[in-house]
Design a protein around this nucleic acid. Structure first.
Lengths: 177, 177
DNA sequence: GGTTAATATGCAACTATTTGCATAGATACA
DNA sequence: TGTATCTATGCAAATAGTTGCATATTAACC
């Protein structure tokens, strides 16, 4: 499982609370690894038990206490070990494409609506990625870690625009049936 | 869940055994919905209980008996109902991209090897898709269902070649760090 | 003669993910 | 004054997916 590792990767940047991690999983790293806060809190418990993170409670006035998780040397080692193991190919599961496989048994108008929504979702993502690139990476001096993130960000931008093009092409074909 | 629906979609083509379905999930529909035979047999049991498929045992000499599953009218209706419901955006989970997010804590040579393997996997897929297109779709008269499959197949071919290009670009960037 | 692959089905255990619920103070808005 | 949102954590149940095992016959290959 790589949820554990995705969390460790986040913590290489800085110590964080579960809440911070959940927000990260909605933003940066969440672009290719999504996880709910419930999953993250549970996984943090496991990582603590293994000694990969150190968890310390910090009191705040007014707000509930935060528990800040710090990557330990053992955690860093686990991360490097994991990085050498073969990556699984991502499991594709797409409802929308399955629906194309039985066009005669499907509601075509509903399918078109779903395609429109899907295109909009990718456009939203694309805009988000471009903004992040402009704000945090363009014209800056970058260290190794930042360069890695930029590589992924740029591939994400390309991927999203290409996906939008393909989906629009499918829409046209669906309209011409 | 759409495993159930993916099975129903397969059965719109023709009645099949669990074994046939498992093979289909390794080939055509499996390009965007993967499932193991264990999962399929379990799901078939549920579909039978719901009355969405009719299961009949057929004896064969020599080989073990097959159980042929046929889509019922209720199953067909369930499929159409499902088709009108919003499609979820596919959940992205990619180890390989996560590894780029902590380049300083990762084994770079191992990462390059994994990139190479990933590129080869996509090339294999691309070749498979192109062959299927040539063999079963090029220059043929197609009905509505076949046209739907062709649309997905063509988008798959484009997707794979674009993915290969993006991965190769990432490899170059990784080499120039 | 022995090994491997293909055909054909399925249970059981484990791991992962999703969904619903629960708590509780602070702040902002209408 | 009520509603909504943000901060911050987590349990429990249900659903989904993976991995390991189990059985049994045929056919091809070395």
């Amino acid at each position: 499982m790589a949820l554990a590792e995705a969390i460790l990767v986040c913590l290489t940047e800085r110590p964080m609370s579960g809440y911070d991690l959940a927000k990260n999983f909605d933003a940066s790293i969440g672009f290719f690894w999504r996880a709910s806060h419930q999953q993250i809190y549970r996984e943090l418990g496991r990582l603590r038990e293994k000694g990969y993170v150190l968890s310390e409670e910090v009191s705040q006035n007014g707000k509930p206490n935060r528990i800040i998780h710090t990557l330990t040397p053992a955690g860093k080692k686990a991360l490097r070990d994991w990085s050498t193991k073969p990556a699984k190919h991502p499991s594709l599961k797409d409802d929308l494409l399955v629906k194309f496989y039985a066009l005669e048994n499907v509601d075509l108008d509903a399918l078109k609506d779903q395609m429109t929504i899907r295109i909009e979702q990718h456009q939203t993502k694309l805009v988000k990625y471009v903004r992040i690139k402009e704000r945090y990476y363009d014209g800056k001096d970058l260290d190794l870690t930042q360069k890695g993130k930029l590589i992924v960000l740029e591939q994400g931008i390309l991927q999203e625009s290409q996906t939008i093009e393909r989906l629009e092409d499918m829409m046209v074909k669906l309209g011409n049936l």
